[in-house]
């Protein structure tokens, strides 16, 4: 009994630690006072202001487009690569896996600088496309690492059976293999989307002066004070995701949840 209580207590403390800043940010989004450190009463004002704020809405739009496109392209390239790697012999597979691990283990600042240097060397103007390319680059490994375990679990006989029964390899791939690895593909996509959304450092080095994502916009405001609309926006984003996940997990009780196995 005591042990159980202690375990619960420990989990509770860690969750409080992880979620306390989030609670504070949600609180700040309802704060009438413009200052971060003073409570001026409850208001919905910033939520109304938010949609009028061109700069923030533009940054939001850029962020979401980059997150979606980079996750999508990374999912396609990464899934194809995982399937190919799965059929390779050990040595080439280990080498490719090693390369996959580089952006995950390397420091963001180094990845960001190195990408900036290559864009500059190619005389490529930093902007939307350079950020997109950078995000695809660091997202591909997350997709591969999500899809790989599913491929390992596959029973090769089902695919061979489909071929024996007259399916073309492509048809058999879409009918037999893809449904089996789909949970991995989806979780890879969502993980990539999340990573892209939360990235600051790599975007900071590859974006150039012309565009801003939410992260880089917030960074420019750190010294002069964050606009309260930003708190409102991140609260909306957070609550949306939370609700989506609750819905998916509810449905997942009957049908196994697709998102999450990583």
């Amino acid at each position: 009994m005591v042990k159980k209580f202690f375990e619960r207590f420990y989990i509770g403390i860690i969750l409080l630690f992880l979620y306390a800043p989030i609670i504070i940010l949600i609180g700040l989004s309802f704060n009438k006072s413009k200052s971060r450190s003073k409570w001026g009463g409850f208001t919905f004002h910033w939520y109304k202001e938010l949609f009028q704020n061109r700069e923030i809405m533009n940054a939001l739009y850029t962020t979401l487009i980059i997150a979606f496109l980079s996750a999508l392209i990374a999912t396609i390239i990464g899934t194809a690569a995982a399937i190919a790697m799965n059929s390779m012999r050990k040595t080439p597979r280990t080498i490719l896996m090693g390369i996959t691990n580089i952006p995950m283990l390397n420091a963001d600042i180094v990845t960001g600088i190195s990408l900036m240097l290559i864009f500059v060397a190619l005389r490529y103007t930093l902007g939307f496309t350079s950020v997109l390319i950078a995000h695809i680059t660091f997202n591909i490994p997350y997709v591969i690492l999500s899809v790989m375990p599913k491929l390992r679990q596959l029973n090769p006989s089902t695919f061979e059976a489909a071929l024996d029964l007259g399916a073309t390899p492509v048809y058999a791939f879409f009918k037999v293999i893809l449904p089996d690895i789909f949970p991995g593909v989806i979780s890879g996509f969502f993980l990539a989307f999340t990573m892209s959304l939360d990235d600051f450092v790599i975007t900071h080095f590859t974006k150039g002066p012309s565009i801003n994502t939410l992260s880089t916009k917030i960074y420019t405001e750190v010294r002069k004070g964050i606009k309260p609309e930003m708190y409102a926006l991140s609260t909306l984003l957070f609550v949306t995701v939370l609700l989506l996940l609750i819905i998916i997990n509810r449905r997942g009780v009957t049908k196994k949840a697709p998102i999450t196995k990583i």
Partner: peptide, 19 residues
Amino acid sequence: VLIMILPMWMNFLLRTIAW
């Protein structure tokens, strides 16, 4: 995994500023 990843949907700079 969800519990651990969920905070990432609140921007990392903002979460640090909240500290």
